[in-house]
Design a binder for these strands. Structure first.
Lengths: 106, 106
DNA sequence: CGCTAGATTAGACGGATGTCGAATCAAGAC
DNA sequence: GTCTTGATTCGACATCCGTCTAATCTAGCG
């Protein structure tokens, strides 16, 4: 499973690189962290916008990219929309990049 | 350190997202995996080119992106250039994406 | 030296990306 | 219904990105 164990196949690379691509923007990385680090792993969009010097449409665009990459999910509750992190994909990416300790056995 | 523990700062996000951006292409992800999964963690460029249906300059371009992101290093030995993975940055990214188990204590 | 093989650089091209303002949609208050 | 607030969608713009061919550089061989 880790990248260092065996070569990532073409299909898997396409799928996984899409997730990394979504993480490849400082605003999106901070957005994901803001969402994931909150108690309950959820955040309202209104709480996220204030952390950036960007327009609301731009934040909305970045959240959509994160959602389409499968890194977050969203749910509307009344007036506000809440985003939550998806731990499954995060763990998968984390394992992919993991580097076994120098002397670790197979 | 993990993304879910506390919000990633602006400066750290800029630095880390640059690495994820480099991983955000299927060719580069496979290249890194091909390099890292080889015995000794090294690979010659000539061995990498054959795995793709791309021109040599394109492979060279992707290797440069990986190098400038700090994910690989390169060294010329005679006629051939060898690339090796950088485990330190890989581990840092892996830890960043790690999601503690549900019942884990702080 | 010239020649060949491996690798990078330079320049060009089409397509994707990040940002914005304006318009639109959704839900509630009055 | 109208108005207000939160959030998204639309359309535009400048910039960046992946790919190619052609040219260049590096190292060895004769």
């Amino acid at each position: 499973m880790p990248l260092v164990r065996e070569p990532v196949g073409s299909a898997a690379a396409t799928e996984l690189s899409a997730a990394f691509k979504a993480l490849g923007d400082p605003v999106r990385l901070r957005l994901l962290s803001l969402i994931a680090s909150r108690d309950g792993g959820e955040a309202c969009v209104c709480e996220l916008t204030d952390s950036f010097d960007l327009s609301a449409p731009t934040i909305s665009h970045h959240l959509r990219v994160l959602r389409e990459a499968g890194l977050v999910g969203s749910e509307r509750r009344g007036t506000w929309v809440h985003y939550r992190a998806e731990p499954t994909l995060l763990r998968r990416l984390s394992e992919l990049l993991a580097v076994p300790a120098a002397g670790s056995v197979a």
